[in-house]
Simulated assay, not measured.
Amino acid sequence: MSEERRVHLARSARPSYDALAAFSKTVIAAAADAGIDDRLREIVQLHASQLNGCAYCVRVHVERGTEAGLEADTIAQIPVWRESGVFSERERAALELTESFTFIHEDGIPDDVYDHVGGILSEAEYVALSWILVSINAFNRIAVAGRYPVPPKA
């Protein structure tokens, strides 16, 4: 089936999409209150989108990440964060949590990840990042299922 013939969930069930968008705004506001800055928020959303193969969301979060101060080199290092030296301990913990949430069907959140991340992030930060990851994974699934075309650069 071609892209043009796929159901576009955001248009076909606008109230549901609007509810998800409102949820996302609530999650982002709560994350800011918990001390999650724009840079960290965009790093995890970009990485989840990369892992889910969501080109649409990658484009959106590269642009938002750039606005939040991420440089091209930092963005390019996200897929290889384990080998990279450009991320702080806190960012590395968030990236590790991102991978566990995105691939939650494999092992849940393994105890070693939970313990490691929990030793670096506060409970409020862990909770806030978890909700951000729930939200972005939902958006990724909508865009991937609908084969949303990559939006033009802003």
Rank of each mutant, 00 (worst) to 15 (best):
A93E: 03
P110F: 15
A34V: 07
P151L: 03
F23D: 01
A154F: 02
R39F: 08
A72Y: 02
A72K: 14
T66P: 04
Y148R: 14
A21H: 05
I75P: 05
T98N: 05
D112W: 10
V86P: 07
T74R: 14
F23T: 02
I36C: 03
L46G: 03
A10I: 13
D37Q: 09
A145R: 10
W131N: 08
A22G: 08
Y17L: 06
D107R: 12
E89Q: 07
Y17I: 13
S88W: 06
D107I: 03
Y126S: 10
S88T: 14
A55Y: 00
K153T: 05
A76C: 07
H105Y: 13
A10P: 01
C57G: 06
I132T: 06
L9E: 06
V60N: 06
L51G: 13
E83W: 03
I75S: 04
I78C: 04
I43G: 02
A31H: 01
P149I: 02
R59M: 07
D112A: 15
Y56Q: 11
A55H: 05
E4S: 13
S24E: 09
Y126T: 08
S24M: 07
N140S: 03
G35F: 11
K25H: 10
A31I: 00
D111N: 10
D37T: 06
R64P: 00
E99G: 05
A68W: 01
W131V: 12
A34D: 09
D73Q: 15
C54A: 08
E63H: 01
S24N: 14
D37C: 08
R90V: 15
P149N: 05
V113K: 10
R92L: 05
K25Y: 00
H61C: 05
E67P: 01
S130Y: 04
D18R: 12
G118I: 12
A128W: 00
V27K: 03
E123C: 15
T102P: 13
H8T: 15
D18Y: 08
E96A: 11
H8N: 15
C57A: 12
A143P: 03
N137T: 11
V117D: 01
N140R: 00
G119H: 07
R39E: 07
P152D: 12
G85A: 07
I36V: 15
S135A: 14
G69R: 04
P149W: 00
R41K: 15
H61D: 02
L40R: 08
A13W: 07
